[in-house]
Design a protein around this nucleic acid. Structure first.
Length: 265
DNA sequence: CTCCAGGTTCTGC
DNA sequence: GCAGAACATGGA
């Protein structure tokens, strides 16, 4: 078992804020599934325990970033100061781009519990067995439309199938070399991937913190908090990227999580 | 039964 | 360019 001293980090807020879907939780500890491995992780105050590579854990949970600096930029108003205090330590993760693409194709017009169920079934159908669990499917493995439809993904099955044909190692290497707008454009060429999902992949797997994904929650919250009227997605993105600058996406994750948790613990 | 969920695509102006 | 409908599925 490895351990790491962490500051300004909340495993719970990070994992449970709807940016990653392949995990299970028991007694406050988490079991994480990626396409390469599965591992255990648990936090006790400022100590993080895990049985995976230390360097990987730091990158995966976004621990290499200067949190204080990001926090300062995010906390521009009373609303954001409250959110950053309440969910202090929530980090934007840096997950595997392939896993991120596939997971978020499943996310369209869905909800977090169902997305988790869908990616779990994808892993069971197409993933490598690891003990009692199944790893996330590897690149190119989603090659059976009938099996895809058995995972309850509905109309997204054909998108997954087509995307699986297009994306390979080289495609992903190119993607990771690109700047934000280039990467977003390349991602949006995939079937089932539009502006929003492309932004999610940019933010949650490529480290482009200036991406600002707008879903129904963010739209509602931004209209309520900053506009006081119905507002187009385009205007919302424009405002947010100007207002929050190069950490707009980070702010977005607090707005989203705060909105979803509203009323809940 | 109706409405909604981390949207995208297709159609018709 | 932009609004509206269609697209599967499951839970409230």
């Amino acid at each position: 078992m490895q351990s790491l001293i962490v500051k300004s980090f909340s495993l719970k807020h990070t994992i449970e804020s709807g940016q990653f879907f392949s995990f299970s939780k028991t007694n406050g500890s988490y079991f994480i599934m990626t396409q390469d491995s599965s591992f255990f992780v648990k936090q006790e105050k400022n100590k993080l325990f895990f049985n995976c590579n230390k360097k990987f854990a730091k990158t995966f949970f976004g621990l290499n970033e200067n949190y204080d600096k990001i926090l300062k930029k995010m906390a521009r108003d009373e609303h954001m100061r409250k959110l950053t205090a309440k969910y202090y330590g929530l980090r934007v993760m840096k997950q595997n781009p392939w896993q991120c693409i596939i997971s978020f194709i499943c996310s369209s017009a869905s909800n977090v519990p169902k997305i988790m169920k869908n990616v779990g079934l994808l892993s069971k159908q197409f993933g490598e067995k690891s003990g009692e669990n199944y790893l996330f499917p590897k690149i190119g493995e989603l090659n059976d439309l009938k099996k895809l439809k058995n995972c309850g993904v509905g109309f997204r099955a054909k998108y997954l199938h087509e995307t699986n044909k297009i994306v390979d190692e080289e495609w992903l290497i190119d993607l990771q070399k690109m700047n934000y707008l280039e990467a977003k454009q390349k991602l949006a060429e995939l079937p089932g991937v539009g502006e929003k999902i492309a932004d999610c992949v940019c933010l949650f797997s490529l480290g482009h913190y200036d991406a600002f994904p707008v879903d129904v929650w963010i739209k509602r919250i931004m209209e309520q908090t900053y506009f006081g009227r119905k507002t187009s997605n385009k205007e919302i993105v424009g405002f947010a990227r100007n207002y929050f600058g190069d950490c707009a996406g980070y702010a977005q994750q607090y707005l989203y999580h705060g909105g979803r948790m509203n009323g809940k613990t």
